[in-house]
Design a protein around this nucleic acid. Structure first.
Lengths: 338, 338
DNA sequence: TTGTAGGCGTTATCAT
DNA sequence: ATGATAACGCCTACAA
């Protein structure tokens, strides 16, 4: 294992002082063009790359951001991460990635991130526990949460307009002539899912003339399988909704497959269906699922802006919230005339 | 922005030397239990966390690994990343994540990783250019590639047994009574796809009595859409294969949807189909796609072992290859008796 | 414009 | 067992 080339090595080679090397690589430092040339030449010969680690010690800022993810098997989170990576890179920030299964690992994960002196933390976890919120606040560095209800001194959030989307779903169901609306919720701890459900149920209740029986409610865990199982059980009980709003697309795909498999029911003829996230599979021909697109680009843009602000010179324990409207993407699953 | 708590702060508070604080947090350092207790107490009161940055300077090892990903919208890569994150974390390594769109960004991405002094680089990109290989070798740190044919002094690879799987696919087609086999390749630069194709075509040629016309070949870009389009064009030309081996599951899903949509053909009655990767969607009821499971766990285990070895005391420019057999997962799409 | 010197927060080495 | 001290590689005053 050879020792990496240092600025001192380059200095020796170029016949200048170590500071000159530092200056040659710093934007807008006062250095003679000729000196810079010599330095860059020597650096190229030695294959030198400035080491950012000492700079972290001196400045106290690492330009690394801890990104905490979970459930990458949901294509929505995968594409969010992909988008975030691109955006942070453009902002000159590095990503220190941590994958978390449960709240327990979150604890030690945050510890590790802090010991690497990340400047901030971004998380898209569907965590809502008060304990998690306290842990994040205790970091005393900016935290950006996606679709979470967490609040605290250092915590900012970027959320999709979940409640409004729920209301919209009810309206779409009305225009499709749905008579028996159903709601497939995500896990209780998922704040975004709760908001979507509240919006949808409010929309249905507001139209009690049409829907006197209210909403048929089910619960899954945001996975394909849980959507499939929920519908299978529902059909086994003899229930027959003709409109289903699912808290996310994965469950909606499972639900649609269960309708076909266990009830020979198809969308939109027998059941009108809507999902959330607009994952690629929603657009696959086997599904053609109408869905709310969270506009990941906008969410991530907002997050990056919050981050930039929080990492700026006047960075303190701010706490802001940015709301991004979901965009309805209409497909076959709601293509039904009254 | 308050200055982070340092070991000196803790030392002052606990009434001991700074070295004592360092020892209290180091495994197996010689320190009196009473002293350690005092230190840990003071540390807890001040909410102190050891800073790993200086340790990086001293040891020259950051315990950070650069992970370069691309195409997270393919569920296979997403789950690989998820698995890798878990495995590296267990090995006490941090992930510095970089998302790369094209070979150009790879260049600067590697630069950044190096300036943060990552100990190694892991990549699952389907890159095969000689230029990329040179760039990776030039890093002069261990590089682990997934499913790549890249070679070089510092480069180790973990590959699925692609060629053998291709042969197996041909055998399965034989036992299903396929008369007109087709191969849907991925992009030319994808070495894994090429190996799968070679294996499959070899398997078909070896049985020229049964298949005198050989293999009908198509090409996609590994995306769902490209699989859909390839089959749509094929059907439009009047071709009618009755067995399709796709280089990956995403394209196979697209192909299956195109068969249904544009030819009213279904699997396995009209066409027997096999894919590769065993992504979750292959198991969805709408597809029921027989697929080769790359056994991500094993691939990642192998990668972590290679990494551990390369980061060990005798780490040099080694170059090893580990092959993991793909596991055939049989589903509806090949459930056809002769 | 250039070089010298001090310091960032740890760990490791050496006395005590 | 403990405290003082020297690194690690770079940036940044400050002096020349």
């Amino acid at each position: 294992m050879t020792r990496p080339v240092t600025s001192t090595d380059v200095a020796r080679r170029a016949g200048v002082s170590q500071s000159a090397v530092s200056r040659a690589f710093s934007q807008g430092a006062s250095i003679a063009p000729e000196t810079r040339r010599k330095v860059l030449e020597a650096a190229a010969e030695l294959n030198y790359r400035p080491n950012r680690i000492p700079a972290i010690m001196l400045s106290g800022r690492s330009r690394m951001v801890g990104v905490v993810v979970g459930g990458l098997s949901n294509p929505f989170y995968a594409s969010t991460l992909e988008c975030l990576a691109t955006s942070l890179r453009a902002a000159g920030l590095q990503i220190l990635l941590v994958h978390v299964d449960d709240a327990l690992t979150l604890d030690s994960a945050l510890d590790q991130l802090l010991s690497y002196r990340v400047d901030a933390v971004v998380t898209a976890l569907a965590i809502g526990s008060q304990r998690a919120a306290r842990m994040l606040s205790d970091l005393a560095i900016p935290v950006i949460c996606f679709n979470s209800r967490l609040t605290g001194p250092w915590i900012s959030t970027v959320v999709s307009n979940n409640h409004a989307a729920g209301l919209t779903a009810a309206q779409v169901f009305e225009s499709c002539g749905v008579t028996r609306p159903a709601w497939l919720a995500g896990p209780v701890r998922n704040a975004a899912s709760r908001a979507r459900g509240h919006g949808f149920i409010a929309g249905v209740r507001a139209n009690s003339a049409r829907w006197p029986d209210g909403v048929l409610e089910m619960r899954g865990d945001d996975s394909y399988e849980s959507g499939y199982d929920a519908i299978r059980r529902l059909l086994a009980r003899g229930e027959r909704p003709d409109g289903l709003f699912s808290s996310n697309d994965l469950m909606a795909c499972g639900a649609m497959d269960a309708l076909r498999q266990h009830g020979s029911l198809n969308c939109p003829d027998n059941v009108v269906m809507m999902g959330y996230d607009n994952i690629p599979q929603a657009g696959w021909h086997a599904y053609g699922l109408t869905s709310f697109d969270q506009q990941v680009d906008c969410l991530v843009d907002a997050a990056t802006q919050l981050l930039d602000a929080a990492l700026g010179p006047d960075g303190g324990p701010v706490s802001r919230t940015r709301v991004v409207d979901a965009r309805l993407v209409t497909r076959r699953s709601t293509a039904r005339l009254i």
